[in-house]
């Protein structure tokens, strides 16, 4: 049985069966409030792995599964089953785990999720950092985002090709890039999910030729990026940042200075770490339980 305290935090979590084609995972990662990772299950609903947006993007960019693409082409590769591409899941917990243990695990390791299973590995739900932030976003902590953001900003200049932006996200292992103008001001944000969605929608309307894919990828990054830039200023409270992220359904956003220049990036797990540092794990747990 899932502990009551834990149950209210769990979400169902998107899943794909291990024998489904990779493109199915790509669809799930691209549509609606697209999740960043999907759990892979066997025929009985047992968790056997996990697949992330980056993993699919790597395949699309020819940076993974190159041996396979050489033989089968990209189309064939996308028809290959998810089991070949997934990763092992190392963030699995039994359903009797406590919320505090999960919070500590996520904060210590900068991991935004934990997979909850029963004794036979059947999925019971996913514990996400966002579920915790939802209960804390009205709170103010008296701490600015500046101290907890990633200061090394990896961004894409306006006009950069989608291909280059995608390669940067894969190589530098980031999920999002602010798209900036000449002055370093954010004019948009592009995420791995955005690229997957664009590629998928284009491919669906065309005849699945690699040539078409290259055409899409050579377009400027603005075509994939969301133009509405949600950002937070350096000195704004971490609670404000959380609220803004949740209201806009984004998982991370640029941090700007008084001149509007991008000086950092803050993500949901950064905020959870910041909140834990600000009030301590016990108070944090009391807040979200209340």
């Amino acid at each position: 049985m899932v502990r009551m305290a834990l149950e209210k935090f769990l979400v169902k979590g998107a899943t794909v069966e291990i024998h489904m084609p990779l493109i199915k995972a790509m669809e799930l990662l691209s549509y609606g409030r697209h999740p960043y990772r999907i759990l892979v299950t066997d025929g009985e609903g047992k968790v056997v792995g996990i697949i992330s947006g980056r993993r699919v993007l790597e395949v699309l960019m020819g940076m993974r599964g190159a041996g396979m693409s050489e033989k089968k082409g990209l189309r064939g590769t996308l028809e290959e089953h998810v089991g070949v591409f997934m990763d092992e899941c190392h963030e699995t917990f039994l359903e009797d785990v406590g919320v505090e243990a999960l919070l500590k695990f996520m904060v210590e390791n900068t991991i935004g999720y934990a997979v909850i299973v029963d004794q036979s590995m059947r999925l019971k739900g996913v514990f996400l950092e966002v579920a915790v932030l939802q209960r804390l976003s009205r709170k103010r902590f008296g701490v600015g985002v500046g101290g907890f953001m990633t200061k090394e900003v990896i961004s894409a200049r306006a006009g950069t090709s989608i291909e280059d932006a995608a390669k940067t996200m894969v190589k530098r292992r980031v999920r999002r890039l602010p798209v900036v103008d000449q002055e370093g001001k954010a004019i948009g944000l592009v995420t791995i999910g955005d690229v997957l969605r664009l590629v998928l929608s284009e491919l669906k309307t065309q005849s699945w030729l690699e040539r078409d894919l290259m055409e899409i990828l050579h377009a400027p990054v603005e075509r994939a990026a969301s133009p509405k830039t949600v950002s937070v200023r350096l000195e704004e409270d971490i609670g404000v940042a959380a609220e803004r992220m949740l209201d806009n359904e984004v998982s991370g956003m640029p941090v700007t200075d008084s001149g509007g220049r991008v000086v950092g990036i803050i993500s949901r797990i950064d905020l959870l770490k910041a909140m834990t540092a600000a009030i301590g794990i016990e108070s944090l747990k009391a807040e979200i339980d209340g």
């Binding site: 599964g65 190159a66 041996g67 070949v84 990763d87 190392h90 699995t92 039994l94």
Partner: peptide
Amino acid sequence: RRHVRLNFLITKGLSNYLRMHIELVGKMG
């Protein structure tokens, strides 16, 4: 012990090597 059983046993490592091999050589099922 439970944490290790779920996350850090050799079957995961072996799966990773097999998957890497499949991917590198491009063999399919």
